[in-house]
Design a protein around this nucleic acid. Structure first.
Length: 346
DNA sequence: CAGCCGTGGAT
DNA sequence: TATCCAAGGCT
């Protein structure tokens, strides 16, 4: 018996007792629900995803309802989850599956990979979890488990894929796939792995050598640049707030945010409006952290004397109680602050 | 192919 | 508080 067989056998035996079997997307485990969950789980922890998944499925119980929805509603349900291209791709892919696949979820690797937002690993996960096909995944969990178990130092992507494929069993692939993710998420964690509870402790090379936490070798990160901006929280006499829709590509694509400006507020107003500012209040600056830069935001609340006109592309007045579009996280935070600020009666 | 794309949890 | 980074994919 080779070591690969031991690996999957150990894992499957462990899964029966200790695997996660009550995650929301496992009941029922349809392709649609597995797909939604896999997209949400990209670079996002299970705890964070669960409430989003519940709301999303409740609103869009099947692929037709998702395909027929407005992008704004999809992005609203995605607000706070990040990586908003995932939501845009999800919406577009739903329409393609309805229109070109007759609403039937594709079950071939090539077809899945050609869909927006579904890469090699997500395609493998959908086929393994929802269709029980013998397909391989290579996500963060699998990379961590394999790089420790087989001590892979310069984690070469192709090498890891080959190893992952060799270890994937022909049968019970759905259980195996869930199991290896569960192992990575609950036992073989990044910090403080619980090796004494691990079904692979006898074959794990890193554990034998006592160097579990040395793997996977962390990538060196560059220092994050700091950018600065002002967010204009412009409110008219009807208490409505002015928001502007971001272009579909790029940061916060398709979301609505407060108008941002780098120059002085007075100069910005000269360019975009003829109205006069009734009241201006500068909030304390705060830092928003992205993956690749910091954004220091100075919020400025501006009260207009009447229902004002703005020469600002893709902008619209919203009632603060009814905003049914996607919002960037700092905008949500500031809207909450503004509401409590006004409740106090300042 | 390296940079881009979010946010919040954990330490 | 600062840092890392989580069920990755796209360009």
């Amino acid at each position: 018996m080779n070591i690969e067989n031991n690996f999957s056998a150990n894992l499957l035996a462990w899964f029966e007792k200790h695997g996660r079997k009550d995650l929301p997307w496992q009941h029922p485990r349809t392709a649609y629900r597995v797909w939604i969950s896999e997209i949400m789980l990209q670079q996002t922890q299970v705890v964070t995803v669960i409430p989003y998944f519940e709301r999303f499925i409740k609103t869009f119980p099947n692929i037709e309802t998702l395909a027929n929805a407005h992008l704004d509603q999809v992005l609203q349900l995605w607000t706070g989850l990040g990586y908003y291209a995932r939501a845009r791709n999800l919406h577009q892919t739903a329409q393609i599956i309805v229109n070109e696949f007759n609403g039937i979820f594709p079950d071939k690797l090539e077809e899945l990979i050609n869909l927006k937002g579904i890469g090699k690993s997500t395609a493998g996960a959908i086929l393994a979890l929802a269709f029980n096909q013998s397909q391989t995944i290579l996500d963060g969990n699998v990379k961590r488990v394999l790089s420790r178990c087989y001590i892979i130092e310069n984690s070469n992507e192709n090498e890891l894929w080959e190893l992952a494929k060799q270890l994937t069993p022909i049968q019970r692939t759905a259980e195996y796939t869930q199991a290896i993710m569960d192992l990575g998420a609950t036992i073989c964690t990044r910090t403080k792995p619980r090796c004494l509870e691990c079904p692979q402790q006898l074959i794990c090379q890193a554990h034998q050598q006592g160097v579990e936490t040395c793997f996977p070798i962390p990538k060196q990160r560059k220092a994050l640049p700091i950018k600065q901006t002002q967010m204009l929280m412009i409110q008219n006499a009807q208490q409505e707030i002015l928001l502007q829709r971001r272009p579909l590509k790029g940061l916060w694509g398709g979301l609505w945010i407060f108008p941002m400006c780098e120059e002085s507020v007075e100069e910005w107003f000269k360019e975009h409006s003829e109205e006069k500012i009734a009241k201006k209040y500068i909030f304390p600056m705060f830092r928003h952290t992205f993956t690749h830069f910091y954004l220091d935001i100075t919020p400025i609340h501006i009260l207009m004397a009447k229902k004002s006109q703005f020469d600002l592309p893709n902008s619209q007045w919203f009632s603060t109680e009814k905003i049914e579009v996607g919002l960037a996280a700092p905008v949500v935070k500031l809207l909450q602050q503004l509401t409590s600020f006004q409740l106090i009666g300042a």
